[in-house]
Structure formats: structure tokens, C-alpha cells
Amino acid sequence: MPGTASLRDKHSPMNEARQIWYRGSVCRVFIAAMLASGLCAACSGSAQASFLAPGGPIAAQEGNLFYWVIGLMMIVLIPVFVLVPWFAWRYRRSNSRSEYRPGWDFSWPLEFLIWGVPVLLLLGLAFLIWPNTVRLDPYKPVDGTTPMEVQVVGLDWKWLFIYPELNIATVKEMAFPMERQVHFAITSDTVMQSFFIPTLGSQVYAMAGMVTQLHLKADRAGTFKGENNQFNGMGFQDQKFAAIALPASNFKDWVRKVRELGRPLDENGYKALEERTTVKAPVYFSSVEPGLFRKIVQKYALGNRQPLASRPDRQEARR
């Protein structure tokens, strides 16, 4: 072929440079991967609003599980990080010293290894996942004590917190006593949302006509970020609230403050909340219309009608 020799010689400086570039690119990918994951871990360790800087037992256990899974997965990941660049480099075409066996395509021992190890790892993970999923079920109480009740209503674009035992309600701010578990009953009076306080742990969806449940507990005082995690429209980014864990006495003060500053949450008050707006500052309600939460749920329960059992005519008939 005329001109071939002049095109590129195998040992030309050009070719050398190219080889170095190749080596560079493979290593660079690897280094970037390592760096990035390192950075990621470093950052999350110092994170404020994260289950990795836990504010309670649920988040702490979830954080442990997080590291356990990463640790176990390293059994299959580290060989890939090491062997892929190593094999690629060791068996590069220009390395004439390495062995070349183009017909070699199977080995029983290796086959056992590459299927066996992941299967064992799967078993290990299964034993890790199942009990922990049961233990950390959001519906399961954190401990044996009586929880404080909070009813959560997802609205566009704010959360309404009703304290049925205290007969108060708030928006944008939710205080609770620390070192006592809180039971959240969650619903939505609009589209689907997701109720989440990252520092305390699990999130659960809020859906109209349905009540989901969540148990959380704070074991230190603090103001944690609370949010909606499921996009629900133009005010989504502002649907945050302050979740404030307080020592028991301070919590009492807070309740008093709500009662003093608030006004009653009646039908008109609720109508105003239903409007699709964002709320900038906390809103307090000194009393709540009885059965409001159930009313909100039942609005959707059977197609805009009340469930049969609670309809007056049905009760009439039974009597």
C-alpha cells in the first residue's frame, strides 16, 4: 500500500504519545471515580439535614444500614476497580510480553467464583435487608411508650399539623418533645406528596382519601428541616417546615405560645389553607374543629360521599 509507511509507524513518537494518552484516560476515569466517591462520603459526613447526621434512632439505624450495604458491596466492587484498569493495561496490544490466548473463553473455577460470590453476597444482603425492613417499618412504633399524636395534612403548598390531644394546629412549624416518639397520621387534601424530615429518618407518602403512618423520635433537641419530597406544583420548592425537637418543658411553653398567638381553625380558616399558595411564616391555630382530619380523609373515601357507616340516613335505618 503506497504511503502506509509514512502514515504512522508503530514506534513513532506520535504513537508513544498516543499510548500515554490511552493510559491517562483509563487511569483518569478511575481516579475521578475514587475522588468523587471520597468527596461524596466526606461531604455527607458533615451534612446537617441528613440521616447521616442523625437526630434520632430511626435515622441512626438507617445510616448504619447505609454503611453496611456499601461495605458489603465492596466485595464485588473493589475487584472491578482494580482489575478492569489492570487487565486493560496489562493486556494492551503494545505489550508484547503479555500472554495472548485468543481461544480461551471458559473456566469452571472462575465461573463458580463469578456466580458464587454475588449469590453469597445476595444471601448476605437478604439477611441484612429483611429483618431491618421489618424493624424499621414506618408503621411500627419506635419503642413501647405511648407516642404523641400528630395528624399531617398535605396541602398545596404547605403542611398542616394537627395535634389532636392538645387541640392545636400549626403550619410551617411543627414542634414536638424530644426523647418521646411521635406518631404521624398522614393524608393529603390534594395531589400526592411525601412527608420527610431527613434528620429524623423515613419519609412516607401522603395520599388523598388514605391515611399512612409514620413513627419518628428525636433524641436530641434541634430544629430540623422538614419538606415535601414529591413534586406537586409551582410552590413545591417552598413547601418546607421547621421540625423542632424541644425538651419537655420547652414544648409546654411552645404549646402555650401557639394557644396565645393562634386563632381557631374553623371552616373558613381551613378554606384559606386549601388555596394553592405558599406560606412564608409559621401559622398557629389555638383550637381545631373536632374531627377535621377524619373529615378531610372521608372527603375522598368513597367518591365525595361519606362512608356508609357514618351517613346519618344509614344510622337512622339501623336504629
Binding site: F66, M73, V76, L77
Partner: peptide, 21 residues
């Protein structure tokens, strides 16, 4: 190399309690 990192985070997400957060 990159894909296995995604695999790792996939297993994290497949662990329900981690997924909750």
C-alpha cells in the same frame, strides 16, 4: 468502572430502610 458505582447506589436504594431516606 462507572456502572458498578451506579450498581452500588442501586443496591442502597433497593434496601427499603435506606430508600426511605
Amino acid at each position: 468502572i462507572t456502572f458498578v458505582i451506579g450498581g452500588l447506589t442501586g443496591v442502597l436504594l433497593a434496601t427499603p430502610p435506606v430508600d426511605y431516606v
